[in-house]
Amino acid sequence: MLIRIVRMTFRPEQISEFLELFHASEDHIRHMPGCRFLELWQDTNHANVYCTHSHWESEEALNAYRRSALFGQVWPATKALFAAPPLAFSVQPASVSVTNSAGVGS
């Protein structure tokens, strides 16, 4: 599984337009092959900063979405509302065991 976080800073006057765009497309994104989860977060200290948090079966599934007609419509429209460049990164659950100060697994 791949977890994708995209942090986006919007011009304050564009927030309602972004929210309309997100709500109009979120169900379509959730139904893309390989998408297992999608939600929208808002920064608690900066009202114009939002993050999408999505889970994908694989990097290939995410890339297939990024090549889709849906992404080709949603992303350019979203980018037009930005006040700053987005920050996007992919992560996965860590499988490293925790070690104590002696280097022994716990």
Rank of each mutant, 00 (worst) to 15 (best):
V98C: 09
W41L: 15
F37S: 12
M32K: 10
F71H: 15
H55Y: 06
S25C: 11
I3T: 15
I3W: 09
L87H: 08
A94Y: 00
E39A: 11
P85A: 12
Y65R: 06
Y65E: 02
Q14S: 14
E60K: 13
A77I: 05
P76M: 08
C51V: 07
V104D: 11
T52A: 05
A47R: 12
A69P: 10
M1W: 07
T52L: 09
R11Q: 15
S68H: 09
A61E: 02
W56D: 00
E59A: 11
M1P: 07
S68L: 06
L19D: 08
V98P: 00
S97W: 08
L40K: 03
V96D: 14
A88Q: 03
I29E: 02
F18I: 12
S90D: 06
L40Y: 00
R4Q: 15
T78S: 07
R66S: 12
E20D: 15
P33E: 13
T44I: 13
A47Q: 13
R66G: 10
F10E: 03
W75V: 15
T78Y: 01
S95M: 10
S16V: 10
C51Y: 07
V96L: 13
E59Y: 04
R67N: 14
I3Y: 13
L38H: 04
F89P: 01
P85E: 14
W41Q: 11
R7A: 03
R67C: 09
R7L: 04
E57K: 03
A64Y: 00
I15D: 07
S68N: 09
N63C: 05
A64Q: 10
N100H: 09
P85R: 06
Q42F: 00
T52N: 07
L81Y: 01
H23S: 12
V98A: 14
G72E: 10
A88L: 01
E59R: 14
A77P: 05
F82A: 02
N45T: 12
R66F: 09
N63D: 12
R4A: 13
E60M: 04
E59K: 11
V49K: 03
V98M: 12
A83C: 03
T99L: 14
H53A: 05
H31K: 14
E60V: 07
V6Y: 01
S95E: 14
D43Y: 02
N100P: 06
M1L: 13
W75E: 11
V6W: 04
L21Y: 09
A24T: 13
K79W: 04
N100F: 04
Y50P: 01
F10C: 03
E59S: 08
E26T: 10
E59L: 09
F37P: 00
S106D: 11
L70Q: 10
F89A: 01
R30S: 09
A24I: 06
T9L: 02
T78H: 01
Q92N: 06
H31T: 13
T9S: 14
A69I: 10
H53N: 11
E39F: 03
A88W: 02
C51F: 08
L2G: 00
R4Y: 05
S16T: 14
H23F: 15
V96M: 11
E60T: 13
E60L: 05
L38W: 03
R67L: 12
A84D: 06
A80D: 06
F82K: 01
A61G: 01
F71K: 07
L70C: 07
Q73K: 15
Y65S: 02
M1N: 10
L2E: 11
